[in-house]
Design a protein around this nucleic acid. Structure first.
Lengths: 232, 232, 232, 232
DNA sequence: TATGAATGAGTGTTCATTCAT
DNA sequence: AATGAATGAACACTCATTCAT
């Protein structure tokens, strides 16, 4: 038995080391991908850009991904998870739905403003965007449906809400990237009105303050943003 | 005088023939481009696809365009002009702004539904879309601004209105293309609420009937749609 | 007989008009070619450049030339004839050979300096150069051989003289085009020494003054130079 | 310690193998380029010719060069270094400048005669030639200037000497390629006279014998010449 | 004879993918 | 697992040449 353990232990060790190394390489590729997509957009990015930025060889890429789009998907997922959970941790669950939604949107924009890499990345991925509806439903299942049924939002198809939320926010970020002044509260108010919130109430909620969520330094968002800044 | 005419006639004739041929080829390229973009999207389309579809040689392409994107731009412009003018001709100018807007949006969607090529094309060009704000302002200058100042829409940045209108409509069309059932009145109502129209009023207006504009058979929209259908 | 003349006269007239027109178009092509070759070098010039500069159509080109190189050849010949005969008219035939040669070389350089188009053209045609030996022998047959036999130049192969004269002058012009200061008398002296003239005598002859030949305004050189200047 | 070596060896091995393969491919491309330029001249050579001759794929070319001209430059440099060092090793440094120069020129011509590929290549690259002045100055810095200041050559601009040397030699090689009989001593004598050497002395020096330098069989010159011969 | 639209072979360049080491 | 040289299909673009008008 001891023998067995002794025999397997080195294997486990090697396996663990191998897996860690594998994870590290994977992370480097995703991080590099995030930065390159932010720099060159979805269609301007090729495998070579990513592997060079990640400091690995071409061949290694194919040990982790099949196509460049897979990197985009992985980066989108990783970022979306991080960000959405950061935001949801910051939202007071006792607030009414409209206020929670408003808080989430504004926190998202603040996060983007605070992380130019993320801003660029999001503005550039265009129609390949995060699939906000899905992510939203992962973290806060049935939020939209429940709110509609509870009468907080007026009746409308769920996916229409998430669609408008997603593409509207994207359009907003694109204007920010373009250097224009954007009126975020006006945007939030418009979304709330669309959801059936009365004009004055919408304006009031849209004006409520948010605090930008704190991003842990080991997060992909923080790491890649820092590396990206350094290279610009 | 007769002499003059006799001398100039052959020149005019040759010139006219040449110009007509040139125009025909140009039209074929734009029409082919529209179809290919509808089939393969913006990034999947290459010059070769277009010239093959148009039945002209590679070299001919470069007598008319520099890049494939120029074809996209030309197609967008041609379609946008046709469609917007068709729709605006159909709108009763005496209606209040909210009803005119609702009518326009619904007519646009109907037109798209009736012309699968146009639907695909529009859904696929994505963020390269028509620049609705601009086109809207060409045909109905200051419509949004005036409506806001007149108190018909609630105050918000002009470009935010056109942004949401454009990207929202695009998202809607993408769902139609995907074969989903979409609730156009619900969409229109959402847009109207966003603009400050009260819930009941928005619902009422969104439910008003539209007649799909008649498309003249020589229009690019009709021609290319017919050809496209035939090839599918 | 009168009848005959009357009948043929109009024909002659038309023929003459036709030939004149043909000559005019030909001249325009050669002139345009000269300018384009000066602008873009031998390998950078394509038929389109020439026809556009000449203001004629592509098809017309093929009524006069088969290839773009034929234009180069025609331009070279026309310019070489003009220039060499201008220079030879200016040379005092009673001078000893060394002085005549020195005068010719210096006049050639002066002519080039005074006509930037010609300078550029000559510097850019490179190894396709004028075939100076041949042109020289056209205008002054056996000049080199006679001078050698008379003991004015020391014995050496004739074509070696013209080779060194041609490529040396070309190298000189290239330095002028590059904006460098060149010492023309030093060059002439070097050529004369190469021909066997003693050092002091060579220096003396190389320092003799020349007057730049007058170029008639209807010459290709003058015409194309003027047009070229205007377009730069 | 043994451990260390064992760990690094495989890396070194892989690296070495890779570098060797890389070097081999590079050499094949340069060698192929040399042969194709000799066959078709500078302007008649395209990337496809080179890769086909080298037996590699189109894509491989771009792993080593950006343009076809880069191959020309590489070939010129490689040949020039080989040849010039061969010649300079053969020259007795104790001889007076005029004799050393004469020896160099004659050895160069002999080398060209003995290597038809090199002869063709040199004659065809024309004005893109070796930049003899530069190469000369690399190997024998200030040779011309020092000789002038020492009174061995008569005063004249340095670059005029190298210009005439280069273009004169090139013209000579072109005649050899054309199958004409050329009088190399006469050429050398002409160059020497140009430099101020007296006629008799020039003739004497130009007549001194040279031994054609021995080319090691692994040299680019030898390798590519052999391959080229075999294919003609 | 002049025109210029149309042609298509030729060439340069990119980039995903494979594979021997 | 990692490397990176090699590959070749795909694509962009040029330009000499033809031919109907």
């Amino acid at each position: 038995m001891t023998e067995e353990i002794r025999q397997t232990e080195p294997v486990d060790y090697r396996t663990r080391i191998g897996q860690e190394r594998r994870q590290r390489t994977y992370d480097r590729l995703v991080e590099a991908g995030t930065m390159v997509f932010a720099d060159r957009g979805v269609n301007g990015t090729v495998i070579d850009h990513v592997v060079r930025r990640a400091g690995v060889s071409r061949g290694t890429f194919y040990n982790y991904f099949d196509t460049i789009d897979d990197v985009l998907v992985a980066a989108k997922r990783a970022l979306a998870r991080e960000i959405v959970s950061l935001i949801f941790e910051a939202i007071d669950e006792d607030l009414p739905p409209a206020e929670r939604l408003a808080y989430g949107v504004k926190a998202f924009v603040e996060l983007a403003r605070a992380h130019p890499l993320f801003l660029e990345f999001t503005a550039r991925i265009g129609r390949h965007a995060y699939g906000f509806g899905q992510v939203l439903d992962e973290v806060a299942p049935c939020f939209v449906r429940d709110s509609i049924m509870a009468g907080d939002f007026c009746p409308m198809p769920e996916e229409m809400v998430t669609d408008l939320l997603e593409v509207g926010t994207l359009a907003l970020l694109r204007r920010i990237v373009a250097g224009e002044d954007v009126d975020v509260p006006a945007f939030v108010a418009a979304i709330l009105r669309m959801l059936g919130v009365a004009q004055e109430e919408a304006t009031r909620i849209a004006a409520l303050p948010v605090v930008c969520p704190v991003v842990p330094s080991e997060a992909l968002l923080a790491q890649s943003n820092a590396a990206w800044i350094k290279s610009h």
